[in-house]
Simulated assay, not measured.
Amino acid sequence: MKLSVYLAGQIHDNWREEIKNLAQQMDLPIEFTGPMENHERSDNIGEEILGKQQDAIAKDEAASSINNLRTQILLQKADVVIALFGEQYRQWNSAMDAATAIALHKPLILVRPASLHHPLKELANKAQVVCETPEQALKALAYVFEN
């Protein structure tokens, strides 16, 4: 068995690479997907596909439609979603992806520091697992593969 795991969260650092490397070290049969990590491409994809937009709001709307298409497809194909929240960045996309996973009845692992307990309490209540580190999230997935 191989799991498809969607990694929801901010795209401003390398946390996804850390998870992928850790999963490889743990020899877990996992295929990872996630949002477009190239921030410039994500911001410009609407104009690349739909053409020049009349203003910044229209440009954002066009990009959002294409990014949402991509996200919806990948979330629907995922077996499980890991949503990471940290202290440094505002993470509305992470919250949206986590809520979408819940709506799609996808198992959700919520990774967040204890300091974010209160603002994420409703999402945490709907998640299957709430933990504080990516390593804990992968250990939870490793348990799925045990006989």
Results as ranks from 00 to 15, higher is better:
Met1Tyr: 12
Met1Ser: 10
Val5Asp: 00
Val5Ile: 15
Tyr6Trp: 12
Leu7Gly: 00
Leu7Thr: 02
Ala8Val: 04
Ala8Thr: 03
Ala8His: 01
Ile11Lys: 03
His12Pro: 00
Asn14Gly: 05
Asn14Gln: 11
Trp15Thr: 04
Arg16Cys: 07
Glu17Met: 09
Glu18Val: 12
Ile19Met: 14
Leu22Phe: 05
Gln25Ala: 06
Met26Asn: 02
Asp27Ile: 08
Leu28Cys: 09
Ile30Val: 14
Gly34Ile: 06
Pro35His: 12
Glu37Ala: 07
Glu37Ile: 08
Asn38Cys: 07
Asn38Trp: 14
Glu40Ile: 13
Glu40Trp: 14
Ile45Ser: 00
Gly46Tyr: 03
Ile49Met: 11
Leu50Phe: 15
Gly51Ile: 09
Gly51Leu: 10
Gln54Tyr: 08
Ile57Asp: 05
Ala63Asp: 09
Ala63Pro: 08
Ser65Pro: 01
Ile66Cys: 06
Arg70Ser: 05
Gln72Phe: 13
Leu75Thr: 03
Gln76Ser: 11
Ala78Met: 03
Ala78Gly: 02
Asp79Trp: 10
Ala83Glu: 00
Ala83Thr: 01
Ala83Ser: 04
Leu84Gln: 04
Leu84Cys: 03
Gly86Pro: 01
Tyr89Trp: 15
Arg90Gly: 06
Gln91Cys: 11
Asn93Thr: 12
Ser94Val: 03
Ser94Cys: 07
Ser94His: 03
Ala95Arg: 09
Met96Tyr: 15
Asp97Tyr: 00
Asp97Cys: 01
Ala99Leu: 09
Ala99Cys: 04
Thr100Gln: 11
Leu104Ile: 09
Leu104Val: 08
Leu104Tyr: 15
Leu104Met: 15
His105Lys: 14
Lys106Met: 09
Pro107Val: 05
Ile109Arg: 02
Pro113Arg: 07
Pro113Ile: 13
Ser115Asp: 12
Ser115Trp: 13
His117Cys: 06
His117Gln: 14
His118Asp: 11
Leu120Asn: 00
Lys121Ser: 14
Lys121Asn: 11
Glu122Val: 10
Leu123Trp: 02
Leu123Arg: 01
Ala124Arg: 04
Lys126Ala: 11
Ala127Ser: 14
Gln128Pro: 00
Cys131Arg: 06
Glu135Phe: 08
Val144Arg: 08
Phe145Pro: 01
Asn147Ala: 12
